[in-house]
Nucleic acid binder design. Structure first.
Lengths: 219, 219
DNA sequence: CCGGATCCTCGGTGATACTG
DNA sequence: CAGTATCACCGAGGATCCGG
């Protein structure tokens, strides 16, 4: 099994040897939030052939990026998780997310977003430099999904599930992507019916400032 | 020419569609420092087939990552350069460099480093958080190559060529990689003969602090 | 059901030769 | 110098099968 190499003594080339093969980064992406089982990965990566998934998992494990764990729990399952080294990719992936979203076609917003892309989207769009001294609790609804985003002294805590005492609830009747891309303002989202909000409306502008992928890319 | 897609409405997947194909990121890497001609890229990317280079260049151009420019200068050349959008990848590539270098085998240091990897290496290893209030001019020699790194009020200016009035000159008799990886200290590099230095030796420790890829990766 | 392995086809990659 | 043309090969894609 001679892996494809670039033969350059360079960190970038080496990095791409580790996670540059097709589907590899998306597998890492899937493991960013939580460990996953083989069939979960298959389901969450529509289009990946089973043999490619199996091959990538073995390669990533051999390279020390992910770990295969056999859970002793009832039902004896196998889960894949990131190693500490693999988890260091998180920051890179968030930046890649920001970069790539600029080149995303304006979707027809039809595909209702599942939870994880939404969590990642907000996480990647968070701008810490806008959050100094900020304290606010947001709750975001996507149809039947609920997630929370709490900013506490400039730190972001984000994940699925409701917020205990949200200052502002944003009910996304449509995708949040245009807001994150900077194509529209948060106020416009409310005015156009894209968002329905409950709570402290004053925080709406803050939300738009806190979560925004860089727009200089649009040029 | 149907490009390979992932079919996910996700910035990471989209980003990998743009620059995830084989050799694409290394082409971007080559353009990070300066525009390059076709044959320069061929020479600087040993092993890339000419048709693959041609294909990637066309794809990257179509995607808005790079630009093909016909220079009106004598000799009528074609050069490829990053677009502003493509240049936004710089930060991501530097982080990937940091991440990938941890998985680099301890090379036999034989291949004399060309200039650009060295510039990139230092650039990627720079830790701004260590540079507050720092003013220092370094000059680094690699055999016949010379580069400079000037830290001015925490800002780094780095590139090929000598420094006008260096505070410290580091003559690398061997690779700088072990230092950047944190395997050795700057002092040890001098003691072992890996570096020869001229100038203010007091700045040596500072240099080691300023330029160091994160070591928690090693574990 | 889970966690893959196997088989087959197709197209991208790698290597080389060639051209305006 | 800046690519095209040609071709062998192997990895991706897609489906199916299999042991626990």
């Amino acid at each position: 099994m001679t892996k494809r190499r670039y033969g350059q003594h360079c960190g970038i080339a080496r990095g791409m040897e580790l996670v540059g093969e097709r589907w590899a980064i998306l597998i890492v992406r899937e493991l960013l939030l939580t460990p996953r089982r083989y069939t979960e990965l298959l389901r969450r990566l529509p289009g990946i052939p089973t043999n490619v998934l199996a091959t990538r998992l073995k390669e990533l494990e051999a390279e020390g990026v992910i770990e295969r764990k056999v859970t002793p729990r009832p039902g004896s399952g196998v889960v894949y998780d990131l190693t500490p080294y693999g988890r260091e990719l998180e920051d890179i992936l968030l930046r890649l997310w920001r970069w790539g979203i600029s080149a995303l076609p304006v979707s027809q917003d039809s595909g209702r977003p599942s939870m994880d892309p939404a969590v990642r989207a907000l996480q990647a769009s968070f701008r810490p430099e806008m959050a100094a001294e900020v304290n606010a609790k947001f709750e975001i609804w996507f149809g039947t999904f609920v997630m929370h985003a709490t900013v506490d002294q400039g730190r972001l805590e984000i994940g699925p599930g409701a917020s205990p005492a949200p200052d502002l609830i944003i009910d996304c009747r449509s995708s949040m992507t245009p807001l994150l891309k900077g194509d529209v303002t948060a106020d416009e989202c409310v005015e156009s019916g894209r968002f329905w909000i409950t709570g402290d409306r004053e925080l709406l502008g803050l939300f738009g400032d806190l979560f925004r992928a860089p727009s200089e890319a649009a040029q």
